[in-house]
Design a protein around this nucleic acid. Sequence first.
DNA 1: AACTAAATGTAGCCTAGGCTACACTTTGGC
DNA 2: GCCAAAGTGTAGCCTAGGCTACATTTAGTT
Lengths: 152, 152
Amino acid sequence: MPPTRAARRPAATELPAEPTQARRFGKARTAQSTALLEDYAELIADLLASGGEARPTDIARRLGVSHATAIKTIARLKREGLATARPYRGVFLTEAGEALAARVKSRHRLVVDLLRAVGVPSEAAEQDAEGIEHHVSDTTLLAFGRFLKAHG
Amino acid sequence: MPPTRAARRPAATELPAEPTQARRFGKARTAQSTALLEDYAELIADLLASGGEARPTDIARRLGVSHATAIKTIARLKREGLATARPYRGVFLTEAGEALAARVKSRHRLVVDLLRAVGVPSEAAEQDAEGIEHHVSDTTLLAFGRFLKAHG
DNA sequence: AACTAAATGTAGCCTAGGCTACACTTTGGC
DNA sequence: GCCAAAGTGTAGCCTAGGCTACATTTAGTT
C-alpha cells in the first residue's frame, strides 16, 4: 500500500473532524430554504380566511416584493404540492399547504408569546419572530409551551 | 383630471395597504443575507484564536460545505471589508471583521443561555441558536440579558 | 359593447450560495 | 532536492429569490 506521504501543517488543535458544527450549519441552511414557503402558505391561508381570495398582487404587497417575484414563488409552491392556482384565478392551498400554514401560524404565536414573556417589547417581538420562527425546532417549541404554561 | 376608472374586485377586507408586515418581511430577508457572513467571521475568529491559522479547507469542513464554496464566500468577506487574505496564505479578519465576530459570539452565547433558561435542552438550544441568532434585534438581546440576570 | 385601468403572466437579468471538475502551489518525507 | 498529497484557486453549472420591462387578460364604467 502507498504510505501516506505528506500531511502538511500540524493541523493546530487537531479537532476530531467536527461533524457536529457542520451538521448544525447544514440544518440552519435547509431551514432557511423552507422559510419563504412557510411565509407564503401562512399569508395565503390568512387571505383566504379573511377575504375569500388570495391574489398574487395582494400577496406581493403584503410581503413587500414585486408581483413577478410573488408569482414565481407561487409557482414553486405549486411544484412542492402546497398550493394550486389557475391563470387569473387566484391561489389556493392544498391539504398539505393548509396543514403547513396551521403549523406555522401556531408556531408564530408561540414564539411571539415567549419573547414577550421574557420581557421583549411587543413590537420587537413581532418583528424578530418573523425571522426566528423558521429556526425553532419541535423540541424547542415544546419547551416554549411548557414555559408559558408555568409562567403565563 | 382623468377619473379613476376601474377598481376591480371589492378588495375583500380593504386593509390599509399593510406596510408594517412588508417591512417586517423585508427586515427578515436582509438579516438572512448577512447571516452567512456572520457565521464565517465568528468561525475565522475562533480558528485564529485557537489554532493560529484560518485556512479555507478548515472553514469548509467546519461549515459542511465544499472548499470552493468557502473560498467564494471568503472573497465576499473581503469585498465587504471584513477579512483579508492573500493566495495560499490563510484568512485574517479586519478590525470590522473582529468586531463583528465578537458581537456574534456574545449574541450566540446569550441566545443559547436564554433558550436553556426557559427549559430548552442543551443540544436543541445549540442547534436552534445557530439559526435564531441572526434574527435577534438589539432590543430583544437586551431583554434576554435582563431576563437572565433576574432568573439566573 | 367598448374602452381602459388594474391585475396577471412572461422573459430576461442579477446576486448569493451551493456544487463538481480541473489546474496550480506548497510543503513534508524521503 | 524531488515529488506527490494536500491544500488552494478557477471555471462553469445550478437553484432560489430578487428585480424591471413588456405582453396579455379581466372586468368596471360608461
